[in-house]
């Protein structure tokens, strides 16, 4: 299949960016979106041009490195699919595809469509430690956790921190990410002792990074490649409120 790509090109964070149009010829339908970009980049390199800089790592939907707003929707708009798992059969022959970076003040552009998502790392760091007993290997059933709680914690822990929630939100809010990270530890007995401090510190860091606030549009939930539920944000709102009320 043959496609036309409209790609955001920007030399670095200090310069202005613009769109450039490239043809993508002889693309195989079974390629992933990133493999299609690899083919385009090989063409660019062989003709002496600067290849498109984009993030990727595991290419199997579990690392959270790939990004790209494809035709206006982060990760291309297929349920539970990251850009690396998006296949070219989802597109029509002859289609024009617009590729943009995540756009948020907290995610400055490094080059082209690659953004700096260290703000997420700093939010995680602000969360602090989890109390763990050192010593011998703990007994497997020493900490009783119900199936429902462990499943819910795992649903939250599925967040890969890609930042699609921020990219999709009209307010560039990171609430879904922070909610997933706070809930994941706050739900489990291992993370319970620090739950108040964690909620307060991570939200404070989130505000400091310049993310917007949640207006419950639900866009984040719709684009999340790990399908994190919007109700985790309600849980974060509750955890933060309780912690602030208790004066922790």
């Amino acid at each position: 299949m043959n496609l036309t790509l409209k790609v955001w090109r920007q030399k670095n964070g200090q310069t202005e960016g613009h769109f450039e149009t490239y043809p993508a010829r002889d693309i195989i339908e079974d390629m992933s979106f990133l493999e299609m970009l690899d083919v385009v980049n090989e063409g660019l390199i062989s003709s002496g041009k600067d290849p498109i800089a984009f993030d990727s790592d595991c290419r199997e939907g579990i690392c959270g490195m790939c990004s790209l707003v494809i035709n206006g929707i982060p990760h291309g708009g297929h349920a539970g699919t990251a850009t690396c798992q998006l296949h070219m059969r989802r597109f029509k022959d002859g289609e024009t595809i617009t590729i943009e970076p995540w756009r948020a003040k907290a995610f400055p552009i490094i080059k082209d469509v690659a953004t700096n998502r260290s703000a997420f790392d700093r939010i995680i760091q602000a969360g602090g430690f989890v109390s763990v007993n050192t010593g011998g290997t703990p007994d497997g059933n020493a900490l009783p956790i119900s199936k429902e709680v462990s499943d819910r914690a795992m649903d939250a822990a599925a967040c890969i921190g890609c930042g699609a929630c921020v990219a999709a939100c009209k307010n560039a809010s990171a609430m879904l990410f922070v909610a997933a990270k706070v809930s994941h530890l706050n739900l489990l007995p291992q993370g319970e002792p620090e739950k108040h401090r964690r909620a307060l510190a991570m939200v404070t860091q989130m505000d400091k990074e310049g993310f917007g606030s949640c207006t419950v549009t639900g866009s984040c939930e719709a684009v999340c490649p790990k399908e994190i539920k919007l109700t985790f944000i309600a849980k974060l709102n509750r955890d933060f409120g309780v912690a602030a009320l208790l004066g922790k």
Binding site: I73, E100, A104, K105, N171, A172, G212, T217, S219, A222
Partner: peptide
């Protein structure tokens, strides 16, 4: 919220967000 996205998307469509929201 306005300050959180200084550069707008060229091609953006609301995903799942209701008109009211």
């Amino acid at each position: 919220n306005r300050a959180a996205r200084p550069v707008a998307y060229a091609n953006s469509k609301p995903v799942a967000a209701s008109y009211a929201s």
